[in-house]
Amino acid sequence: MIELQEALRKKEIWAIGGGKGGIGKSLITGNIGITLARLKKKVLLVDADLGGANLHTTLGIGVPEMTLSDFLNRRVETIQEVIIKTAIPNLSLISGAQDFLDAANPNFAQKTRLLRHLETLDADYILLDLGAGTSFNILDFFLFSDHGILVVLPEPTAIENAYRFIKSAFYRRFKKVVTNQNVKDLIDAAMDQKNSMGIRTPVDLIERVKSMEKEVGEILELEVSTFRPKLIVNQVRTKNDVQIGFSMKSACQKYFGINLEYLGYVEYDDCVWQSIRSKRPLVIEYPYSRPARCIERVVHNLLRKEQMTLSMLY
């Protein structure tokens, strides 16, 4: 019964984040959106990178007249008014804020209004392009979505930030389901890696919570099992780079106890920056290039709810 309801549920919201800046979040979001639109799905891209929006550029659209900040500032009443139609059928865009300095930090009321309006929109897929960093706003968008997708590069800096992002999202989710103030304080304390209580991993934390309040600990355990972020490794140059996705999956399983789903990778190719330079979307300008193919595969895995398996590597 539950499966049936899930299948009937029309809209899916995907959020694409990753902690570090400049790792290709907007590029991947834009091109996933185009690929989906070509599959005759109704797609809405939302540039939720409120401080540094540039999703419109990866789609080849000039600076838009109406942006999210018009909505957040109530210059327009409904979110419909800030939706821009693109040249690609089935694909529309809500561009990020451009002018409004405070837009990078919407307050709680603005945020909930945005999320509420997003839910009413008519689309098969809503893709949220998140900004860099692990601020609460970004984490909340990530947690609000049906699928949280992380982008990393095969580089220590990006991986470090991705773990940081997972950990922050994870603990924020914990805090949302817990009402007991003592437990909340404990979670806050555990966020500090060098805390004095010897809580190193989420497993330690849950054990400690369980010793305080068994039921709350069990709720958290359930949260762990349902938290399933997805991973895309971008700018892959070698087979070892592809392997990093599997390594992260294993490390996350052993450290956080969470199931990171490895959606796929996007190969490095000069045609990517050429497409950005020419301000034309990658999958339209170079549809047969390897990165474009990789993105198709990622979309395929997302739609089929599949992930990379080791046999694809060898």
Binding site: P156, Y163, R164, Q243, S247, M248, A251
Partner: peptide, 15 residues
């Protein structure tokens, strides 16, 4: 064994 190689970049920030 390859994943838990001491030089693996996917590990050092967790373990």
């Amino acid at each position: 064994r390859k994943i838990y190689d001491p030089n693996s970049i996917a590990l050092y920030s967790l373990f």
